[in-house]
């Protein structure tokens, strides 16, 4: 497992990939902060970093699939899936190794983004407790998205298609709570309750307000587990029906 993790991390950091992705993330961050600063003169608006994070998860939809699109799609395209499958490692180790590598790049991106709060703290005031909670929430959010993106990558052979489908799914995950709140869905309370159970955004909102609730952590962790387990099933299933 470690060798797969190492190889994946190397493939991100020995190439410009991780750096370009991080630069893009920083750009989005700047973009969002700039937008928030522009709103400063609006009444009732208070600039906080959790607010920034809350806005940035929308743009994050476009970033995560780029990180995860190659995870399994490229292995198949290169024909290296055979190498992994015929080595004395099992599929679970392959999936976890790759997941941890993706997570590492994500942590690198998060680490780079601390530039903004640090800079702000030097010139103004940052509520550290709230900021920390927002970071924890953001980490779980990303962990869930990466698991989803990795799952999509296992379905297809073309990494671009993996990215596009991944974006679509992440979009649905982001807006499912808004969707369940529409008048149309509100006519069917059972359906509404069912859809709302999948809503990740309100759970993220708790984090950005400074709450770390066990139920939210469980929600994100189970989303990751389900996605990774499904990932395992997809890979095994394809081996059985290949032809």
């Amino acid at each position: 497992m470690f060798s797969i993790y190492k190889k994946e991390v190397q493939s991100f950091f020995y190439t410009p990939f991780a750096y370009i992705l991080t630069a893009l993330f920083m750009f989005l961050f700047t973009f969002v902060i700039d937008g928030a600063l522009g709103d400063l003169n609006k009444p009732d608006f208070q600039f906080t970093f959790p607010e920034v994070f809350y806005r940035i998860i929308l743009y994050f939809i476009f970033l995560t699939p780029i990180l995860t699109m190659r995870t399994f799609a490229d292995e198949r395209k290169n024909g290296t899936e055979v190498l992994l499958m015929t080595s004395p490692v099992n599929v679970v180790q392959i999936i976890i190794g790759k997941y941890l590598a993706n997570l590492t790049v994500f942590l690198f991106m998060i680490a780079a983004s601390t530039f903004y709060p640090i800079f702000t703290a030097a010139h103004g005031e940052v509520v550290m407790g709230q900021l920390l909670c927002a970071y924890v929430g953001f980490f779980f959010w990303g962990a869930m998205y990466i698991a989803l993106g990795q799952l999509v990558s296992a379905f297809v052979e073309n990494s671009i298609i993996a990215a596009v489908i991944g974006e679509l799914i992440m979009f649905i995950v982001l807006f499912i709570d808004d969707f369940s709140m529409t008048d149309f869905i509100a006519q069917y309370p059972t359906l509404q309750g069912f859809l709302y159970a999948f809503a990740a955004q309100p759970r993220f909102a708790y984090f950005s307000q400074g709450f770390i609730r066990l139920s939210d952590i469980v929600f994100f962790l189970s989303a990751v587990l389900v996605a990774l387990a499904w990932n395992y099933i997809v890979i095994e299933k394809r081996r059985w029906k290949r032809g």
């Binding site: 060798s3 493939s11 190439t15 190498l83 080595s87």
Partner: peptide, 16 residues
């Protein structure tokens, strides 16, 4: 893996 160097690749396989 096209993006790896030969020795790097073999080192990865050795780990596997």
């Amino acid at each position: 893996y096209p993006d790896m160097r030969v020795r790097e690749y073999l080192s990865f396989c050795a780990g596997l």
